[in-house]
Design a protein around this nucleic acid. Structure first.
Length: 549
RNA sequence: UGUCCGAUAGUAUAAGGGUAGUACGACAGUUUUUGGUACUGUUUGUCUUGGUUCGAAUCCAGGUCGGACAACCA
């Protein structure tokens, strides 16, 4: 029993099952339908399923739940595999529900032979009407009493393609009056003359989720089949099929799915954002998809840490985006190389500086264990500095530049603001300073202490880049819960493009997949749109800003 | 009107009959050549009404509130 950390309810069940000898080996599975891209909610399930077998031994299968040929594509199979591996997990077996189509078919035949399934020729509307409502029982129809022989014959014809789509279906014969709507003779096979991404045209009947999932779990000897809360009412059916077929009794356990503030999580809605062009694609850095987060600059470690922190429970939850941001800041703080970039430039002229070709040395990461090494930073008389680092009339507790104020230029000298220049519109365009030669960083003998340090880039040496700054996709905490269309609540300012940002020369060597901290501004990463002569950076997340001006 | 699930600080998550704790957030302070980081402190909570008990967040009963369930989707 681990005393250090408390167990979630699933871990408790597993520890009990292992301790009691109910199972020797833990087997879990991650079962996505390949009909879209994986999102952070899937990441929670991935971390849970794979994390459990890492912790307790055993293994986890990746099983694609591909029982609906019209929505599924190989493109999605590939992206989902890539995302799982990127998150840092490796499945034991790559499997498909479609691997079991023959077996599933024979299970259906067994049910018919036991008088527990029948072919129903009612229309979809009739079936819905006969189903009753949650408060009124359903009513059986005439097809329910067909003979086993007739059912066998009709089901064979269904399989052989002798019927059109929708002409009939195979239903389990359970209880039309059950309080659980799912037990009112659920449909288990339907006709779809559709091309399947793996079985091609071999089949024209396909099992429904409820007739495929539990049996697939059972075939794979899954001990703990973990899914989200909306499947609670399916559990009765899940157990029923396993009991009637007398196969390995996998057990289903449900946990609450992840909801994140300021975003939506359903595949349907994410697909809509993509299709209607509200975002650039599934991997738009604003999307809560794994590929979007990856492009945004999130690390696998940060996402795993997030999934660890949110916990596993059965109550509905809405996790604050700030926790995700905390996780990536925490990770990148240790990893990201520091560099200077000026996003909104004005010029700073050091009137008494006459140096030429001075090179300063900067530490790459004071938070890394090895400090990340150092780099060379060219300095000169004219620099770009951030517009927001100068205030003509300083606020109280203002530590940055203002007329007469002193400030340190990061890695360089202390300067004093002597004057400034405005354009015709009244915007400050230049700040003129004098510097203190003996205040050089690392060998400061000036004895002067300043409260503020600002970043800068030498105008003569600056490279340029495009910077894309992202904000929350929606302007309301819970777009799903609002009145009307969720898209009405899109944040119109979720993406801001800065086309000409000045960066220090070292940043021109930035590589894809690496996090950088633009000192005092935030964490950034190179975007895949970057080319050698047009660098593009994404802002992963800003730094926490202690300035409450 | 039914069945099932759930309810602990702002948000999550522990405590499984015996001190309501932790994290994020917020606020304050210390350190700091990033108003970052780090460190310290403060803040706020058991849905409700009864019952069992020496003792209830925990067990029981009723209520309230929230969620799920009537796709030939998964």
């Amino acid at each position: 029993m681990s005393e250090e950390k408390s167990l979630n309810f699933i871990e408790e069940i597993i520890e009990n099952d292992l301790k009691s000898g109910k199972y020797e080996t833990l087997v879990t599975r991650f079962p996505p339908e390949p009909n879209g891209y994986l999102h952070i909610g899937h990441a929670k399930a991935i971390c849970l399923n794979f994390g459990l077998t890492q912790k307790y031994g055993g293994y986890t299968n990746l099983r694609f739940d591909d029982t609906n040929p019209v929505t599924e594509k190989t493109e999605y199979v590939n992206s989902q595999q890539e995302d799982i591996q990127w998150l840092g997990f490796q499945w034991k077996n790559e499997l498909y529900a479609s691997d079991y189509f023959d077996q599933l078919y024979s299970y259906a035949v067994q049910l018919i032979e036991k008088g527990l399934a029948y072919v129903d020729e009612s229309t979809a509307e009739e079936i819905a009407a006969q189903k009753g409502t949650p408060t009124e029982p359903g009513t059986p129809n005439q097809y329910r009493e067909r003979s086993i022989e007739e059912n066998l014959e009709l089901f064979t014809k269904m399989k052989n393609g002798e019927f059109e789509d929708g002409a009939c279906i195979l239903r389990a014969k359970i209880d039309m009056a059950s309080t659980n709507m799912l037990m009112r003779d659920p449909i288990i096979y339907r006709i779809k003359h559709a091309h399947h991404h793996r079985t091609g045209d071999a089949w024209c009947i396909y099992p429904m989720y409820d007739f495929a999932h539990g049996q697939s779990d059972s075939i794979e000897n899954i001990t703990h089949s973990i899914c989200t809360l909306e499947y609670v009412s399916h559990r009765e059916l899940y157990d029923w099929f396993i009991a009637q077929l007398g196969i390995f009794p996998s057990k289903q356990y449900e946990f609450a799915r992840l909801n994140l503030t300021y975003t939506v999580m359903s595949k349907r809605k994410l697909l809509q954002l993509v299709n209607e062009g509200h975002v650039s694609g599934w991997d738009d850095p604003r999307m809560p998809t794994v590929s979007g987060l990856r492009r945004r600059g999130y690390t696998p470690e940060s996402i795993r840490e997030f999934c660890e922190r949110i916990g596993i429970a059965k109550r509905e939850n809405l996790i604050e985006l700030s926790l995700l941001e905390f996780c990536i800041r925490e990770d990148l703080n240790k990893k990201a190389t520091r560099a200077m970039a000026v996003l909104d430039p004005i010029k700073l002229v050091i009137t008494n500086y006459e140096g030429d070709g001075e090179i300063l040395i900067g530490e790459n990461n004071p938070e890394a264990e090895d400090k990340g090494g150092t780099r060379e930073i060219p300095f000169s008389k004219e620099l770009w500095i951030e517009r927001e680092d100068f205030m003509e009339e300083p606020a109280k507790k203002w530590f940055r530049l203002a007329p007469g104020a002193t400030v340190r230029l990061k890695f360089a000298y202390i300067v004093k603001c002597e004057s400034f220049v405005k354009d015709a519109d009244g915007n400050v365009t230049e700040v003129h300073c004098t510097y203190i030669p003996e205040s050089k960083s690392g060998s400061d003998t000036s004895g002067i202490h300043v409260k503020g340090t600002i970043h800068w880039v030498s105008t003569a040496h600056a490279k340029t880049a495009e910077v894309r700054q992202y904000d929350r996709l929606f302007s309301v905490v819970s777009p799903d819960a609002e009145e009307g269309d969720f898209k009405d609540y899109l944040n119109p300012n979720s993406k801001e493009v800065l086309s000409k940002v000045y960066i220090e020369p070292a940043l021109a060597e930035a590589t894809l997949g690496t996090g950088y901290q633009f000192i005092r501004k935030g964490y950034f990463c190179l975007d895949k749109d970057s080319t050698a002569d047009h660098l593009v950076f994404n802002r992963v997340v800003s730094l926490k800003d202690g300035w409450k001006g």
